[in-house]
């Protein structure tokens, strides 16, 4: 099982780096969905020996939400807004990739600083989780489109989910469901907000929402 976990974690890191360099919004949504599946798989692999039905159910709900519900909501927004790409982001794609490497270094350094009690073969999960969070925050800060910021939020949430899974271990099912429900509600609210922004302004560029100052 450790091999599968490690493979999933490496794939997760690759999806993070891919998000730094992707301009097509459709692709970004797909990558975030793949991340959701990977997280679900890691949760399942990590508990494969003990086989607790509760964990399997919640991991499956997580996969369904992140791989199907979120992409559906976001792709609908893309169709409504008629945008395909993130054009001229605040930080160019080449520079973004450089930033991703720096952030990866920071996440390894930061996770080495955290004195967490981890099982054997889990040492790469924490840097990957923190890297995923950084990726989400980067997308929120460095991109213009409201949609990319929403994807950033989902990715950030993914990273924290993974962190919680490894660092805390057993979280009560009710809490986990509450967190998932919040994420669904957040993405839905953001989707509706983007619909209104697009209808009112004919674009979803957040940097052009700048009439309120001071």
């Amino acid at each position: 099982m450790e091999t599968y976990i490690e493979a999933s974690v490496i794939l997760l890191l690759l999806t993070d780096i891919a998000l730094f360099g992707t301009s097509r919004l459709y692709t970004c949504i797909t990558i975030a969905a793949v991340q959701g599946v990977l997280l679900g798989l890691i949760a399942l692999f990590a508990n494969a020996e003990t086989f607790i039905p509760r964990i399997i159910v919640i991991a499956s709900i997580g996969i369904v939400i992140k791989a199907f519900v979120f992409p559906y909501l976001l792709k609908r927004t893309i169709r409504q807004a008629g945008v395909q790409r993130e054009i001229q982001p605040f930080i160019g794609y080449l520079s973004s990739l450089v930033v991703s490497l720096v952030l990866f270094g920071v996440s390894i350094w930061f996770s080495a600083k955290l004195p967490l009690a981890l099982g054997a073969g889990r040492s790469m999960i924490i840097p990957a989780a923190i890297m995923t969070m950084f990726t989400g925050l980067f997308l929120i800060v460095a991109r213009r489109k409201a949609l990319t910021q929403c994807i950033g939020y989902i990715v950030c949430e993914n990273g924290m989910y993974l962190f919680g899974m490894v660092a805390v271990g057993e979280i009560p099912a009710l809490v986990e469901l509450g967190i998932l429900l919040d994420a669904v509600a957040a993405v839905t609210v953001m989707g509706v907000a983007m619909y209104h922004i697009n209808r009112e302004f004919d674009h979803i560029d957040t940097d052009r929402l700048s009439s309120l100052k001071g």
């Binding site: 924290m160 609210v189 302004f201 957040t206 009439s211």
Partner: peptide
């Protein structure tokens, strides 16, 4: 009250507070 300014305020509130809550 649907207005451009309130829409902008709403998006800022939503994103900044969501990141904060993250």
């Amino acid at each position: 009250h649907s207005s451009r300014q309130s829409l902008e305020a709403m998006w800022k509130y939503l994103i900044i507070c969501s990141v904060g809550m993250a």
